Simulated assay, not measured.
Amino acid sequence: MSIIIKFFVAPSRDAAAAVVEGGPDGVFDSLTYGNFDAEEALIEWEGIFTGRSFAELVDADVPEVVADPDDGGGPLVLLVSAALQDALAGADDLRLGEVSQRWVRERAEDREVFDPEISAWILTGLAELASGIGDREDRLYCWIA
């Protein structure tokens, strides 16, 4: 379970990796969340959006680790896949609601209670962040501490 989760947009992997120790605050605009497994959520959200299985995404190394200086013992930066970034950017409110509800149900199957309103709030924020990228080469990243 991640304590602090910050999603942010950066122009390159190197720029994203450079904030691994202190986080993206003051360097990149970010959205801050907490108390859920962000790496697992990225896999689950992508699976819901794309129809790919959890195992298939894990085998494909989704999400990709950009920086993990403490080998799992400290903060790390993940690259949100292009498929998930595009799905979030193109999702309307109805689709975000569907994904949110399905994610809450999946978490409940694993006996994890997740508030549907918070789930929708997270996905809506990410969709706004992703859609703001537009045609730029920037990418969406996740910093976890």
Rank of each mutant, 00 (worst) to 15 (best):
M1A: 08
M1I: 07
S2E: 10
I3P: 00
I3T: 08
I4K: 07
F7K: 09
F8T: 14
V9E: 08
R13W: 00
A16V: 13
A18P: 04
V27G: 00
F28T: 13
D29H: 10
L31F: 00
L31E: 04
N35G: 05
F36D: 02
F36W: 11
A41G: 14
A41E: 14
L42P: 04
L42C: 06
E46Y: 02
E46V: 05
E46T: 04
F49R: 05
G51K: 09
S53V: 06
S53M: 06
F54D: 03
E56R: 15
L57G: 06
V58D: 10
A60S: 12
D61C: 03
D61S: 15
P63W: 08
V66I: 10
V66Y: 03
D70W: 07
G72K: 07
G72E: 10
G73T: 04
P75T: 11
V77D: 14
V77R: 09
V77L: 12
L78E: 02
A82C: 06
A83P: 06
L84P: 04
Q85L: 09
A87H: 10
L94C: 10
L94K: 15
R95D: 06
L96M: 07
V99M: 02
V99Y: 01
V99Q: 01
S100F: 00
Q101P: 04
V104W: 02
V104M: 05
R105L: 06
E106H: 05
A108K: 05
E109L: 09
E109N: 06
D110N: 02
E112K: 06
V113L: 07
V113G: 03
F114S: 03
F114K: 05
P116L: 08
A120K: 04
A120Y: 00
I122A: 00
G125C: 10
A127F: 12
L129H: 01
A130L: 12
A130N: 15
S131Y: 08
I133C: 08
R136V: 03
D138P: 10
L140M: 11
I144S: 13
I144D: 09
